[in-house]
Design a protein around this nucleic acid. Sequence first.
DNA 1: CTAGGGTTAG
Length: 652
Amino acid sequence: MRSREIVLKLVGVCTTAKLLTQLHSLIIRTGLNHDIQIAAKLTELYIELLPVQTARKVFDEIPQPSGYTCNRILQRFCGIKRYGEVLSLFSSMFSFEKPDHFTLLFVLKACSALNALNFGRLIHGFGIKHGNIHSNMFLGSALIEFYSKCGDMDDALRVFEEYTKPDLVLWTTLVTGYEQSFKPDEALAVFTGMMMTHGVSPDPVTLVTVVSACTQLLNLKAGKSVHGLVIRMNNESPLPVSNALLNLYAKTGSIEYAGNLFRMMEEKDVISWSCIISCCAHNGATDRAISLFDEMIHKGVEPNSVSVISALQASEACCNLEKGRQIHELAFQKGLELDILVSTALIDMYMSCCSPKEAIMVFDRMLNKDDVSWFSLLCGCVQNGMFYKSMQIFCDMMASDIQPDATVMVKTLVACSELGIIQLTSCLHGYVIRGGFTSNSFVGASLIECYAKCGSLEEADKVFEGLTDKDVVIWSSMFASYGIHGQARESVNLFHRMVTDSTVRPNKVTFLSILAACSHAGLVEEGIEFFNMMLYKYQLMPESKHYAIIVDLLGRTGELDKAMCFINQMQSQVGAHVWGALFGACRIHQNAEIGEAAARNLLQFDPDHAGYYILLSNMYAVDGKWDDAAELRSAIKEKQLKKITGHSVVRL
DNA sequence: CTAGGGTTAG
């Protein structure tokens, strides 16, 4: 009798697994393991202290576990997210122990995680039948969360409405449910109802969810009023709330608000830094994004993959290869390079900074690649003019059993059209059909243009006529195809066929194709006619590229003054290719005066482009302006510019 | 033994 009490006391103070095993063997030797009370205590300890599998074994050996013990083991499994085992355990204990509301709580949690809608409904029904669940807020929120996670907001709302006096947690669970189910409007409506008609004040948890809802809606105005509420409620808002607000400002591109809030925040973590860096990186403040990243590192904040990705995107946007490399080094040291998202951001950065070699090295080092990393690699190679490599990557993708999607097909077709190998195009055409891409108009358009660029207008036309559902993209690609072959008349005729035979409305790209076709064939009048049609009949604002074509068109026939006038009356910003077109025309027609103006404008876009200097100096030379020519030549030397040698390839 | 939550990413 005495030893029993001692054992019980010992069990009470046992805190480690090691002590427990020693104690257990002692208990077995004394035969006290048959004592129900001691066995129960032991089990509880096992459940708490031992690896779950052992705990489970111990539990299974108990002939009559109490409800409390059952709940403890369920709780343990819930804690380590082994939800499948929670459900199977529950099913096995159902025969001997009546579940109480604690049991149901754990099981519902498992059902939510596993999306086990039917199982959860069963639990819900059981709860209704065997107890007054509507007096228990804990069960209520578990049920609301369960239905929300299973995507059944109607039932979630029904549960909520059973409560006559829902507390803040219950309200918040409902708001969160709507927000997580991508119904931010409803989330905000419930929130306003809670505050206005029921007079319940939110706490930080509620506020975070509400701000997330505003972010989903990109509703800056609503978000700002929540911010106002936060300020009125509390002088110093908790970090999660500030971070949520920061994210709202970042996502809505409100760089000013984000900056102000960030500066005001007393406490900051990686998330805060990541938000502000990503905000700057995506809204044109790339240098600031980079300096913020440096500041973060300097302050000893440990970077995570997200902050590294944002900093890489900033380097990418401002083509800062050196900075990109530095961040790469840092990511490598921190072991973040293993993250697929980081590697992919690195590939994008190197590709955009014209260093495909380094991008490929990153790719080759990746342990597991997903379809996005493959796509980044493919895209980058096309961007960098490595068309053979792009085709090779496409083949490697297929060999690695990666299913190409429509965007991959488009990029591959672009690479193929640059290579100009028609047999390859036929192969890809076959794949387009087998892969079921025929209904995708972007793939269709790329295929048409690919055939055209490989020299086969017939094949392009065959594809075009074979498509039953021609949208504006498909039509435009065919106009462009005729244009490539100098058949502007056919292009124009086809345009009229589109307008009369279909309901398709031309867009800016359509006019780009038509104008290019006219320019290519020297159809000056028609080109200007189309330009006016675009402007007046279809009310489409021409962009710099459209102007460039018209300038090119006028330039070809030597109407340089007219072209200059045209540029002067442009509404939109004059892009580099507009000046390029004018400059090219001036070279052909030997107009050094306008040519100089064009070249000076061009150099503003690309100050180090040796080609412009040389062509301009040639123009001076032909005009006999030797001094000007010499001056320019020495400027080139001074800047140490080298002309990049041009080359072209023809494949038969 | 009990409930609702943060953020960034191709």
